[in-house]
C-alpha cells in the first residue's frame, strides 16, 4: 500500500461516504474495492427485505439485491463502451470503470441507508402487494439516483467530442439508462422473493 492509499483509508474519522463517492480514485485496486463496497452495502438492503419472511429468505434477498448491479456492470456497461467506441466517442476504459464503481458505491450507500426504514415497512405491511410496491419504489429511487454518477461520468468524457458525436452519445446514454433500468427490473423481479421472484 502506498502513502496515498494509507492516507485514503486512514482512520474511522475520515468521511467514508465522501471517499466512496469521490470523483476518481488513484488506483485500479481502489476502484475495485469501491465497486465491491457498493455490492456489500446493497446486500445489507437485501437483508432488510428478507426480514419480511426471515430464514433463508434473508440470504436469498442478500444475494439477489446486488445481482442487478453486477448484471448492469458486467453486461450493460461493456456494451455501452463498445457502442460508444463505434461512434468514436472519446471514452476511456479506466474512466468508464471508475464511473461504474462510483455508481455501484452510490447505489449501495443509498440502499444501505434505506435498509432500516425498509425493514420496518416490509415487516409491518401485511399485504404482499403493498410490500412489493414499496420495495419497487425504493429500488427505483435508489437505481435512478445511484445510476446518475455513471451517466454523468461518461457524459463528462463525451462532452469534448464534436457536436454530432456528442449528440449520438447522449442518445446512446439515454438508451443505456432505459436498458439498465429494464435489466435491473428483470433481475430483481426474478431473484427477489418479495417481488415474486424465485
Amino acid at each position: 500500500m502506498t502513502e496515498s492509499d494509507v492516507a485514503l483509508f486512514r482512520g474511522v474519522e475520515a468521511a467514508y461516504s465522501a471517499r466512496l463517492t469521490a470523483l476518481e480514485l488513484p488506483d485500479r485496486a481502489d476502484e475495485w474495492r469501491r465497486f465491491a463496497s457498493g455490492l456489500a452495502l446493497t446486500s445489507v438492503y437485501g437483508l432488510a427485505l428478507g426480514a419480511r419472511s426471515g430464514g433463508t429468505s434473508l440470504l436469498r434477498h442478500a444475494l439477489g439485491a446486488p445481482a442487478a448491479l453486477l448484471a448492469v456492470s458486467a453486461l450493460a456497461v461493456p456494451a455501452l463502451f463498445v457502442v460508444l467506441a463505434l461512434i468514436d466517442a472519446p471514452v476511456t476504459l479506466p474512466k468508464t470503470l471508475s464511473a461504474t464503481a462510483r455508481a455501484s458505491a452510490s447505489t449501495g450507500l443509498l440502499l444501505a441507508g434505506l435498509a432500516p426504514a425498509s425493514a420496518l415497512l416490509v415487516v409491518t405491511i401485511d399485504s404482499d402487494q403493498v410490500a412489493s410496491v414499496v420495495t419497487r419504489l425504493t429500488l427505483i429511487l435508489a437505481g435512478t439516483l445511484g445510476g446518475l454518477p455513471l451517466l454523468s461520468g461518461i457524459y463528462e468524457e463525451v462532452r469534448r467530442a464534436p457536436t454530432g458525436t456528442r449528440l449520438k452519445s447522449v442518445l446512446l446514454l439515454c438508451g443505456f439508462a432505459l436498458f439498465a433500468g429494464a435489466l435491473s427490473a428483470r433481475i430483481w423481479s426474478a431473484l427477489l422473493p418479495i417481488l415474486g421472484g424465485a
Partner: peptide
Amino acid sequence: LVLVVPALHGLAASLGQPLRL
C-alpha cells in the same frame, strides 16, 4: 428518526453532498 437518519446520509452522499453520519 432512528429509521430515517441513515437514509439521509445515503441520499446526501449519492447526490454529491456527503456528510458525516
